[in-house]
């Protein structure tokens, strides 16, 4: 299955919904709390709370968002895979998603678990680091392909 997040267009509009919103215009920060849901193209991010860093005017509806920090039961999903963790940082400018805190990535029948994950939205490459808690180990479970004809 073609990885959905490879070559993800980070310029698409970001649609954020949440129970409560606090805006701190001076700091260029907006805090969403409660059932936060962020959708951008084929990628969806849900979390308990989210802090958005932006430039420009949020009220005018066209702020340029530079970074989204989410925490609390964060899950990032697309058509082909889903990643869950304790926190996630979506750096729009660097087109890089970093997640941490018993991260689990499932894609088809493969399942990777570790402490810290970096998903490069340009190449679709995922980098997973172990954590001190589990003596620094990352664990991945893959499936063997069906018996292919002798190559």
């Amino acid at each position: 299955a073609e990885p959905a997040l490879k070559g993800h267009d980070t310029e698409q509009p970001i649609d954020i919904t949440a129970e409560r919103l606090e805006v701190r215009q001076r700091d260029g920060r907006a805090e969403f709390k409660g059932a936060v849901r962020v959708v951008q193209g084929g990628m969806t991010l849900t979390a308990d709370s989210l802090v958005v860093y932006y430039a420009g005017d949020i009220a005018g509806g066209s702020p340029s968002i530079s970074r989204l920090d989410s925490s609390g039961k964060v899950s990032l999903s697309s058509d082909s895979e889903a990643v869950t963790g304790d926190w996630a940082i979506y750096d729009v400018e660097k087109r890089l998603v970093t997640m941490g805190g018993n991260v689990v990535l499932t894609r088809g029948s493969s399942r990777l678990a570790g402490e810290r994950l970096e998903l490069d939205l340009v190449s679709g490459l995922t980098r997973l680091d172990g954590a001190a808690a589990d003596d620094g180990r990352v664990r991945g479970r893959f499936s063997l392909p069906e018996k292919q004809p002798e190559s």
Binding site: E2, P3, L5, K6, S80, E81, L105, R107, S110, L112, G114, S123, G124, L125, T126, R127, L128, D129, G130, G136, R137, V138, R139, G140, R141, F142, S143, L144
Partner: peptide, 24 residues
Amino acid sequence: KGEVELSADLLTYDADTGEARALG
């Protein structure tokens, strides 16, 4: 039966090529 379990210090996984590279 048909499963492989990997553990390492560091793992990179390219969903596109289905290639996992484990280090450490």
